[in-house]
Computed example of a mutant assay.
Amino acid sequence: MFRTIDIITSGLVSQRQRLNTIAENVANINTTRDAEGNTAPFQRRFVAFSAEKSDGKAAGVEYQVEKDTTSDPRRVYEPNHPDADGEGYVSYPNINLVTEFVNALEASRAYEANVVSFNTTQKIGDMALRILA
């Protein structure tokens, strides 16, 4: 039972990190500078999942936050913007708000499913204790 709870907990933590990453993307949708103040658009991040194994058996979910380096920044013609290049274009992050909302909805549903699994496991454990008592 404890192994099951550990697996479910890793799923909860993974989905929470996914939601945090999505929130970071949405918060930086118009960020045109990096942390040092250089003109460089924020790069969208996403969470990659993999199976965590222990002794060759499933032990939960591992995740890693990665940068999306495959898509180009969104260029908008704004010649009066302080971060505009020589041609008058500003490079904005490669973040699609609709995609982020769909991903947030999916992560939220996965989180809810893990909570239901946790509650069910807990009920099964309670029933087992009643049988043994």
Rank of each mutant, 00 (worst) to 15 (best):
Y77A: 06
S91G: 06
T99H: 05
K67I: 14
N96H: 07
K67C: 12
N80S: 04
D68V: 11
P79Q: 01
E66G: 01
A84N: 00
E87N: 00
V102Q: 05
G86Y: 01
N94F: 12
T99C: 03
T70A: 15
D83V: 00
E78F: 13
E87A: 04
S91D: 10
D85A: 02
N96P: 08
G86H: 00
N96A: 06
R75H: 14
A84G: 00
V102T: 11
V76R: 00
F101D: 05
P73R: 02
D72Y: 10
V76H: 02
P73S: 06
D83M: 01
R74C: 08
Y92G: 13
I95M: 04
H81F: 13
P73K: 03
N80G: 03
P79Y: 02
E78H: 11
D85H: 02
T70Y: 12
Y92V: 12
G88Y: 08
P79G: 00
V90A: 02
D72Q: 15
P79S: 00
T70F: 13
N94P: 13
E66W: 04
N96C: 05
Y89W: 11
N96V: 11
V102D: 06
T70P: 12
V90M: 04
D72R: 12
Y89F: 15
S71L: 11
T69P: 07
Y77S: 06
